[in-house]
Simulated scan of single mutants.
Amino acid sequence: MVLTVIVACEIGFWVAVLGGLAARYLLHRRRLSVVLLLAAPLLDVVLLVATATDLRSGATASLEHGLAALYLGFSVAYGHRLVHWADVRFAHRFAGGPAPVRLTGTAYTRACWADVARTTLAVSVAAVVLLGLIGWVDVPERTEALRAEFPLLGLILGLELLWAASYTVWPRRPAEAATAR
C-alpha cells in the first residue's frame, strides 16, 4: 500500500507543479497557480500520514516505508528547487522567458556544494522521519527495516560529497571548451 501512495504522491507532485505552471503561463490565472503549487507539499503530509497509519495499524516495516522517509526528505530539501527548475523552463518555452543557464566552472562547483547542503537536509529529514516512525511503532521487531535505512542515508550523503569534491578538483568546462579538446 505504501508504495502505491509514494507513486501517487510523486505523480500528484508533478501534476500540481505542471498544472500550477500551466495556470500561471498559459491561462494567466495567478491565484489558481499558487493554489496548485501549494498542493505539492500537502502530498508530503498525505504520504507521512499514510506511512505512519500503515505501521501503527500493525504492518511490519519494509523497504517501502523507508523509501517514504527518503521521499519526504528529498521533497523537503529539493522540492522548491525542482519547482524553480520547472518554472524557468516553462517560462522560457511558453512565456518568452530567458533560456535556462547551464552552469560551468566555479558557478557549477558552488551549485554542487549547495546540493551537499540540500542533501544533508534531505538525509536529516529522512533520519528524523525514520526515528519518528520507529518510536511511533515502538516494536523493534517490526521496525528493523527502518533501522536498516540509516547506512543508505550515509551512502547518499557520501556520494553527494564525492560529486561536489570531484567538480571542485575538475570544474565543469563550458560546452565549447569541452568540445575543443
Rank of each mutant, 00 (worst) to 15 (best):
L36Y: 11
F150E: 00
A16E: 05
F94G: 02
E160K: 09
L159P: 02
L36P: 00
C9N: 04
S33F: 09
G12A: 08
V129R: 00
A52C: 03
G12T: 10
A164T: 12
V7I: 15
G79H: 07
C9T: 15
H65T: 08
L42D: 05
C9M: 10
G154K: 09
V116Q: 06
A23E: 08
L82F: 13
V123Q: 01
R147A: 01
A59K: 02
H80P: 05
V137S: 05
G158M: 11
V139I: 06
I156A: 15
E176A: 15
V139N: 09
S33W: 07
Y108V: 01
G20A: 12
G132Q: 01
L103M: 11
A61V: 04
G154A: 05
C9Q: 10
F150T: 00
R181E: 14
G132I: 02
V76A: 14
L48I: 12
L146N: 00
R56S: 13
L18S: 12
L72E: 07
V15I: 15
R173D: 11
A16C: 15
L21I: 09
A86C: 14
L159H: 11
V123E: 07
G20L: 10
V129N: 00
A50C: 00
T51S: 13
A177Y: 03
G158V: 06
A145P: 06
V123W: 04
Y167R: 11
T168D: 02
E160I: 03
L146P: 01
D138L: 01
R56E: 11
T168K: 07
L18I: 14
A95Q: 02
A127N: 02
S33R: 12
L161F: 09
I134N: 01
W113C: 07
V49D: 01
E64D: 13
P140M: 03
R173Y: 02
G132L: 04
V83K: 03
A180W: 04
L70R: 04
D87N: 13
L131G: 12
A39K: 03
R181Q: 12
H28W: 02
H28M: 05
L130N: 00
V83R: 08
W113M: 06
D138G: 00
V45D: 06
P41I: 11
H80I: 08
D138F: 02
V101K: 14
S75D: 13
H84R: 15
L161H: 06
I6E: 00
D115I: 03
W136I: 02
R29T: 10
Y108C: 05
A164G: 12
R93H: 10
P171M: 07
R110W: 10
A127S: 03
V46Y: 09
L131A: 15
L133K: 02
Y25H: 14
L121V: 15
L27K: 09
A122T: 04
M1G: 12
R173T: 04
A95L: 01
V15Y: 08
